[in-house]
C-alpha cells in the first residue's frame, strides 16, 4: 500500500560514487545545479548529458531507478515547457487560432525542460548513492563553520536525521493502522471527499498518539545515554577527503571547462 513511496530512496552499492565523501557529493551537486543554468547552447547540454550518463553508469544504479525520480515532477516539467512554448514573444514560426509558437519559445521551452530534468537526475543520483545518515553527516560538517554566527549545525543535522529515521517508522505504523482498521471494515476508497476525510480519523488519531509516544520514548532514550547536543562531541567515523574526492573534483572541473569552452565557441543560442 504505502511501501511504494521512496523518500529515502538510497540504493545500496559499493561503487566509487557510493564511496565518495558525502561532502564532496553535496558540493558537486550544488555546483552541478548552478552549471545547468549557465549552459547557453545544446552542445553544452550534450556534454552535461554525457557526464551524467557516465556518472549513472559508474554508480551502477539501474537507470530505471534514476528515471523514477523524474516521475513526481513530470507534470511540472510539462506545464513549464508548455508555458514557455506558447507564452514567449519573438519571431513567430507557427500559429493556429490563438496559439502561436515562436523560435525563442521553442528554445526557452527546451532549455527549461532540460534544466529541470538534469536538476532532478543530478539530485536523485545524490540521494540514490548516499545513505540519509551520510547525507546529514556531510551536511553537518559543511554547516560547521556557520556555528560561529550562531547556526546550530549539529542540532539541525540531528533533527534532520531523526526526521528521516522517523519517515519509514511512521509509514510502517500508518500501514499497520490502516490494515487494522481495514480488518474492522474501514473503507478509505469510496464516497465523496467529506466521507473520505472522515474515514481518515480512525487512522490519524492512533498515528498521532503513536508519533508522540515514540518521540517521547526517543527523547528519554537519548537522555539515558547522556546526550547533550553537539558541544565537544566526537565521532566514531570522521569524514576524510581522499584521492577519490580529488578525482571527482577534477573530473567535474573538466566538465565545467568543457561547458564554458562550448559556451565560448558556439555562443548563445538565443
Amino acid at each position: 500500500m504505502l511501501k511504494d513511496i521512496t523518500l529515502g530512496q538510497y540504493f545500496p552499492g559499493s561503487s566509487v560514487i557510493h564511496r565518495l565523501d558525502p561532502r564532496t557529493k553535496i558540493l558537486l551537486v550544488l555546483c552541478y545545479i548552478v552549471l545547468t543554468f549557465l549552459i547557453e547552447n545544446f552542445i553544452g547540454y550534450l556534454l552535461l548529458a554525457a557526464f551524467t550518463v557516465g556518472c549513472i553508469l559508474v554508480s551502477k544504479v539501474p537507470p530505471k531507478f534514476v528515471l523514477k525520480g523524474l516521475k513526481p515532477i513530470l507534470v511540472f516539467v510539462v506545464i513549464t515547457g508548455l508555458f514557455n512554448l506558447f507564452l514567449t514573444r519573438g519571431d513567430v514560426v507557427f500559429s493556429w487560432w490563438i496559439f502561436s509558437i515562436t523560435r525563442q519559445g521553442i528554445y526557452f521551452a527546451a532549455f527549461m525542460v532540460l534544466r529541470l530534468v538534469f536538476l532532478m537526475v543530478g539530485t536523485s543520483l545524490l540521494t540514490l548513492t548516499t545513505s540519509p545518515i551520510a547525507l546529514t553527516d556531510g551536511m553537518e560538517r559543511l554547516l560547521r563553520p556557520l556555528r560561529k554566527v550562531g547556526v546550530p549545525a549539529h542540532e539541525l543535522a540531528m533533527m534532520m536525521s531523526i526526521a528521516l529515521r522517523f519517515i519509514p517508522i511512521l509509514m510502517e505504523e500508518t500501514d499497520k493502522i490502516m490494515k487494522a482498521q481495514s480488518a474492522r471494515g474501514a473503507d478509505f476508497e469510496s464516497g465523496n471527499i467529506l466521507r473520505r476525510a472522515k474515514a481518515m480519523v480512525p487512522i490519524l488519531v492512533p498515528l498521532f498518539i503513536s508519533a508522540f509516544r515514540r518521540a517521547d520514548e526517543l527523547a528519554t532514550a537519548m537522555e539515558c545515554r547522556c546526550y547533550r547536543g553537539g558541544e565537544n562531541r566526537t565521532r566514531f567515523k570522521e569524514l576524510l577527503y581522499g584521492k577519490k574526492d580529488l578525482g571527482a573534483g577534477i573530473s567535474f572541473l573538466a566538465l565545467v571547462a568543457l561547458v564554458f569552452a562550448a559556451n565560448f565557441l558556439f555562443g548563445k543560442v538565443i
Partner: peptide, 27 residues
Amino acid sequence: RFEVGLVMQYPEYQLFEETVAKDIAYG
C-alpha cells in the same frame, strides 16, 4: 473481512474513539 476477524499484534494501538463503547462499535 467481516467473516474473517483479524486481531493484529499490539491491537491496542488502533483504538481511536472517544469512548470504549464507540470503539467496539466501529466494526
